[in-house]
């Protein structure tokens, strides 16, 4: 998809990798044009006035000042442009995000659960049905609390911190959290959704570029927040199948490689202070945690 992104690139916005992303780039781009115009216009006026009407050059002020109604026109213009951006872009775009979900059957359906301080992904497996989950069953080897008695859950896959998806397929991700509020944010995909305990909120997108992308936690969630990093790998269909196979072999004992520098979780248990070595500092304890 083509994308007009002059200011965005100028300001360092990384390239977008999802199908809808360019629209979001557009609205950011256009609002910056609008802001830029206002800013430059006013600044020019501002600087001119400061120079033209300084005391030395204009010893006697005029009581009336500006009499023309120029500003009303200007404010009207601002209203107009904001209205266009709002009604023309913002609102429809959001409607598309939350209403126009792709049909479940031809989309990849994944669940993700945030926890201090990493992401656990839940794949329904071949049968395409998620198994039942129960918080009372949660253990380190069963982070999602999958119910072993539920046949649907038998073939389910879990993956810690890393998710693979095939390119050019719609993906639906059910976002939730187990402890505090996190936010499942994939900047490169221009998509994000808060992970709120007690709620499961779906989001969707369609990757159009293969590669490996960072998943950020965009909500302060404790001392390990800064390192709550997930990885989204957009594969070619073949690589994707390979990954699924590998996962299936691992399934049953979900001991996926922990994401980089995952610190042990914080209170209630209450960490011994400073157990999380600051990045770059000589490693004191093993921060791997799990």
């Amino acid at each position: 998809m083509t994308s007009v992104a002059l200011i965005n690139e100028f300001l360092g916005m990384p390239p977008n990798a999802s199908q809808h992303g360019y629209q979001i780039d557009h609205i950011i781009e256009f609002s910056h044009w609008f802001m830029g115009a206002l800013f430059l216009g006013w600044s020019a006026f501002f600087l001119f006035v400061l120079w033209r009407f300084r005391k030395g050059r204009n010893p006697v002020a005029s009581h009336e000042g500006v009499t023309s109604g120029i500003s009303t026109h200007l404010e009207f213009a601002v209203v107009l442009i904001e209205a266009v951006l709002l009604i023309g872009f913002a609102i429809p775009l959001w409607a598309k995000r939350v209403n126009a979900f792709p049909p479940d059957k031809d989309a990849i359906h994944v669940g993700v659960e945030g926890q201090q301080f990493n992401w656990t992904f839940h794949l329904p497996g071949p049968d395409g049905v998620f198994g039942r989950r129960d918080v009372h069953l949660v253990t380190n080897s069963n982070p999602l609390g999958l119910d072993p008695t539920d046949p649907a859950g038998r073939d389910d896959l879990t993956s810690l911190g890393e998710l693979h998806i095939p390119i050019d397929r719609d993906v639906i991700i059910d976002v939730t959290s187990r402890d505090v509020i996190h936010s499942f944010d994939i900047p490169a995909m221009r998509i994000a959704q808060d992970a709120i305990p007690g709620q499961t909120i779906p989001m969707w997108f369609k990757p159009v570029k293969t590669g490996s992308y960072e998943i950020v936690c965009a909500q302060l969630c404790g001392l390990g927040h800064y390192s709550m990093k997930g990885t989204l790998v957009v594969d070619t269909p073949t690589d994707y199948q390979a990954w699924l196979k590998e996962r299936q072999e691992l399934s049953g004992n979900q001991t996926a490689p922990p994401p980089l520098r995952r610190p042990p979780s914080e209170p209630p248990v209450g960490p011994t202070p400073g157990t999380v070595p600051p990045p770059g500092a000589p490693k004191t304890a093993n921060p791997g945690g799990g």
Binding site: I24, I28, A90, W94, R97, S183, D185, P187, A192, A218
Partner: peptide, 15 residues
């Protein structure tokens, strides 16, 4: 203003 458009905020939020 860009923050006020929630679609743009998808990217800008919390940055």
């Amino acid at each position: 203003i860009p923050l006020a458009f929630n679609s743009a905020d998808l990217y800008l939020h919390d940055t």
